[in-house]
Design a protein around this nucleic acid. Structure first.
Lengths: 146, 146
DNA sequence: ATTATTGCAAACCCTTTGCAACTTA
DNA sequence: TAAGTTGCAAAGGGTTTGCAATAAT
């Protein structure tokens, strides 16, 4: 009952505390930035959205790592080998449609999770997860340069 | 009729020639190595399989790039942000079940290509492709250390 | 006080690039 | 011999690490 009244931010902060972490302004702003962005973004974009120009990018990465450890961060691979970061509800994950030019990303409502888990287990694998991302050129980027 | 008698190696060499490329021992050995490996591998593993200890890794990358340009190379992202390379029939692609410890990878017989293309086009995207990879721990890596 | 967090700077890893020397067709 | 390929060496880009200084509980 009490947990139902918890926002995602509060839930995350609680998880951080319970593993011995301390709550800093950086952490709060970074989590809020991820919530506001609501789509995969680079560490740099996250720092900008969090309005933390003085905070070093190392620190952003370290805080993203903390989010990853408590199971509430998804890493989204791009075709060029870099990655974006996205906040998820603990234990959840998403799939996206990503423009390979502007990196705009929208969530897709498809997931083969159950099927893939079944196949992987049949092959003797454990601790299974998966990624699925769709890449293309969005309408905006496809229109003739003006 | 004539093309039916072409092996994948010959097909690829022909494509290379027709775009002005020259056929070197490096190219032949790298392609053969990819065919023999028959699963995603790193540039370094490919050089080893090709038995080219004297060939610089730059050259391997450059030849992989050529394969990519003629549409017969797939890049497989790992969770750690690096990538593996795999030969495909021109225009084809695969999905895999990959051990996140030993990087052993097997092909999976699933593909949502059509559905995803439809969804992406409905969102106004063009030049669509996608990745899907399943990660886990294989039986070998999961058994207690001996 | 104790322990986590931050900055600094350098290292890291894979990959790419510029340029000159060398092959291949 | 003209154009593609290779090696060399260095740069690149995103990410990580060690260490000392700083800040949160």
């Amino acid at each position: 009952m009490s947990s139902l009244s918890h926002s995602l931010l509060e839930t995350i902060l609680e998880r951080m505390r319970s593993k011995g972490g301390r709550i800093t302004q950086n952490k709060i702003r970074i989590i809020k930035a991820l919530i506001d962005l609501d789509h995969p973004a680079s560490a740099e974009e996250i720092r900008e959205q969090a309005n933390l120009p003085a905070t070093k990018i190392v620190t952003v990465y370290r805080n993203l790592e903390v989010l990853s450890e408590i199971g509430t961060l998804q890493r989204v691979p791009l075709e060029n080998g870099t990655q974006l970061f996205e906040l998820t509800a603990p234990g959840e994950h998403y799939h996206h449609l990503i423009c390979r030019e502007c990196h705009q990303a929208e969530r897709l409502d498809v997931c083969l999770g159950e099927e893939l888990r079944g196949m992987a287990e049949a092959h003797g694998y454990s601790k299974i997860n998966h990624i699925m991302e769709v890449y293309g050129i969005c309408e905006k980027c496809d229109s003739p340069a003006t």
